[in-house]
Computed example of a mutant assay.
Amino acid sequence: MLTVDYDRLDVRAGQTVLDLGCGEGRHAFEAYRRGAAVVALDWGRDEVATTQQWLGAIAAAGEAPVGASATAVRGDLLHLPVPDASVDRVIASEVLEHVPDDLTAFTEIARVLKPGGRVAVTVPRYGPERVCWALSDAYHANEGGHIRIYREAEVRSRLAEVGLLPGSSHHAHALHAPYWWLKCAVGVDRSPAPVRAYHRLLVWDLTERPWLTRAAEKLLDPVIGKSLVVYATKPW
């Protein structure tokens, strides 16, 4: 399940792609399959190990083009282990809302991008996220949880503040917003029948990609899309 539109980000073979806060690697995998040289970075040891395992499975299955490469590393968004101006594309998906010093993280993104390079930043959208916070403290108030809710203007301001040029934006994952509202309403650690039923719907949508749910999400994304995606470019 990708949040970033790779066509808008213009990810191509031969590029160097840095996936920040990679989690279990969903964005790194797609960049690898497109022929990029991918570095997937996360602070969590388990996340790095899982991502590396799946990157190896992609290679073993022959799903990565000749010339592509990928590795997963443990690292800090405030001190990226990457040289200045060395990366063509950066993906920072659903991670900056966890970082207290987000300005330093944005500064690091700008530092490692090559002139002309692009970044895609995704964060929880203000409206759907505010509902989750209102319904449940357990949703966000925990170690490593969400510490802020961004408005789009704030994301754009941060990008501009570090010298990047904000461009297009969109929303994603509208079908996931009601699921999390339901989870927050009943308790994030509980899974009664309605929650399990909705989860099965999301899994079906993810695996089968039926036209009905795809059309519904496309229609609903501008209204209740759970994620905000903003693209930006580093000037030449």
Rank of each mutant, 00 (worst) to 15 (best):
Y32T: 15
V95K: 01
P128I: 03
D76I: 12
V112N: 03
V230R: 03
A193Q: 14
V123S: 02
V11C: 07
S227C: 04
W54I: 08
C132F: 05
A160W: 04
G167D: 12
D84C: 05
W180D: 00
W236G: 14
L135V: 11
G75E: 07
A68S: 15
L96V: 15
Y179D: 05
W133G: 02
G187F: 05
A110Q: 08
A138P: 04
G163Y: 01
A31I: 10
P166S: 07
G167V: 08
G21F: 02
D46F: 03
E161F: 06
N142G: 14
T16R: 15
G44C: 10
D46E: 15
G21I: 11
F29C: 01
P178R: 10
L18A: 12
V162R: 07
E129P: 02
A36M: 12
L220D: 04
R12L: 13
L2E: 11
R89Q: 09
R151L: 09
R89V: 14
V11G: 02
G187I: 09
G62V: 11
K234M: 10
V95H: 02
A138G: 08
P128N: 06
T233F: 03
L80Q: 03
D102G: 04
T51W: 00
D221H: 02
W133Q: 10
R190H: 14
Y32I: 08
Y32H: 10
R34L: 15
G56H: 06
A105T: 05
T107D: 08
R148I: 08
I109H: 00
T104R: 15
G116A: 13
D46A: 15
L78A: 12
L55F: 00
I91F: 00
T104F: 03
R196G: 03
A13N: 10
V229M: 03
K183Q: 14
V38H: 04
L182I: 04
L220S: 07
Q52W: 01
A31V: 10
A134H: 11
G23Q: 05
S169I: 04
A59W: 00
I109W: 00
P83L: 06
K183L: 11
L103Q: 14
P194V: 09
T107W: 00
D10Y: 05
E154F: 01
A134C: 04
F29S: 00
L103D: 13
A40G: 06
Y150R: 08
V82K: 02
L228E: 01
R200V: 12
I58E: 09
Y6V: 09
G75P: 11
P115N: 12
H140R: 14
T233A: 09
P235T: 13
L113N: 04
G225F: 00
G225D: 01
R74Y: 01
E129T: 03
R26V: 09
A36N: 10
A40K: 03
H170Q: 10
S191L: 13
D84M: 07
V121T: 03
V155A: 04
L80S: 02
W181H: 11
A37H: 15
P235S: 11
A193P: 01
G116H: 11
L201I: 13
R26P: 00
L41N: 08
Y139A: 08
P222L: 06
E152W: 00
I224E: 01
A174H: 01
L182W: 02
W211Y: 07
K226L: 12
G67Q: 13
W204N: 11
L159R: 06
E152K: 10
S93C: 13
D102H: 10
P222H: 07
L113F: 08
E30F: 03
K234V: 09
K234G: 06
D76L: 11
